[in-house]
Write a protein that binds this DNA or RNA. Sequence first.
DNA 1: TACTGATATTCAGTATACTGAGCAATATTA
DNA 2: TAATATTGCTCAGTATACTGAATATCAGTA
Lengths: 171, 171
Amino acid sequence: MPVNVLAPGDLVRDGNDMPGHLARRFQQIAVAVFLTEVGDAGYDLTPVQYAALVAIKSNPSIDQVRLAGLIAYDRSTITGVIDRLVQKDLVARSSSSRDRRARELTITEEGERTLRGITPAVEAAQRIMLRGLTDEEGAELMRILRKAIAAGNELSRAPLRNTALDQRRQG
Amino acid sequence: MPVNVLAPGDLVRDGNDMPGHLARRFQQIAVAVFLTEVGDAGYDLTPVQYAALVAIKSNPSIDQVRLAGLIAYDRSTITGVIDRLVQKDLVARSSSSRDRRARELTITEEGERTLRGITPAVEAAQRIMLRGLTDEEGAELMRILRKAIAAGNELSRAPLRNTALDQRRQG
DNA sequence: TACTGATATTCAGTATACTGAGCAATATTA
DNA sequence: TAATATTGCTCAGTATACTGAATATCAGTA
C-alpha cells in the first residue's frame, strides 16, 4: 500500500498515485507540450508523425513494418500516420520492386526542410516537459524509464525492434 | 545502444531517446500490462475506466466535470467513459436536482463487487510494469514523475483539479 | 509444382485524447 | 429584471493505439 501524504480535505485517495496513472499523466503533458511548442513554431506535426519522419530520414526506403519496429508503433496504426505524412508531402510512399507487398518510404525535400526547421521547437518541448526537475532528476528519470521500457518491451503489441540487428532470419 | 549520459542540448540526438518518446513507450507498456492482467482475471475494464470507477466510489454523487478534474481527464472524453461504465452497470448516472445541467454519478453494487475483485490484478499490473527496476528505482521513478507532473499540470487541457480545495469560487 | 506457412499491408471496430463549437442552465452584474 | 458571463455537458472531427481478420505476396518444402 503506497504511503500517500495528501492535504487535509483532499478527496483523492490512492487512485492517482499508481505507476500506470503517473505514466498516463506524464504522457498527456508531454504530448500537449510538444503540440504547443511545434504549433507555436508554425508547424503542424504530432509527436508520432515527428518520430516517424526522423526514422524515415535515417532509413531511406524502409518499409512500414520495419519502421513500426524502429519506433515501437503498431503495424495497423502506422498506415494512418504515413497517410498523413504523405498527404502533407513530407514523405513519399511507393511499392517496392523486390517485394510487391511492401511499401518503401522516403523523406521528401519538404520533409527535410520541416525536420530542420522544427528541431528547436522539439528541443524546447523536451526541456519544458522536464521543467520542475533538476538536471540530475531529469537524467535519472530517463535512465529509469529506459530500463523499465527495456524490461517490458515485449509486453505491448508494438515492441521496439532493431531492424539492423533483426535476428528473425537467423533464428 | 542509446547513449547513457545526455547533455542538456542533446535531447534530440536519438529519436527514441527523448523524454517524450520514453513517456509514450512506458505508457504503452503500462496499458498493455493492465489490460492483460485485468483480462486474465476475467474482467473487461480499461485503465481509464478503472480510475474513474475508483474516483466515483470515493466521491458519491460527484458530477462529471469534477470527476474529470480528479483524475485529469478531458471533459469531452469522460462522456464516453461514463457511457461504457453505465452500460456495464458499474455506475449509475442521474440528473442533479440542485443543478439540472449536472449529472450525478454513483457506483453500483456490481461496481463495488468489480472493484473488490479486480484489485489483485491491478496491483499485479503495477508491479509488472515496474519489473526490471529495483524497489528503490521504482520509488524514485514515481517520485520524479509526480514532481514533473505537478510542474506541468496546467500544460494539458485536462489538468488535475482537487475539487475539495477548488479555489475558483474564492479566487 | 502444389502446398503450407510466414509476411506486409489494410480494414472494421473499439477506446482514449483533444479542438472547437453548441445547447441548456446557472450565476453575476449592470 | 435584463443582459452577460460562466458552467456542465455533448457532439463532430481528427489522431493515436489495439484486436482480429482479410488480402496479397513471398518463402520453404514435399
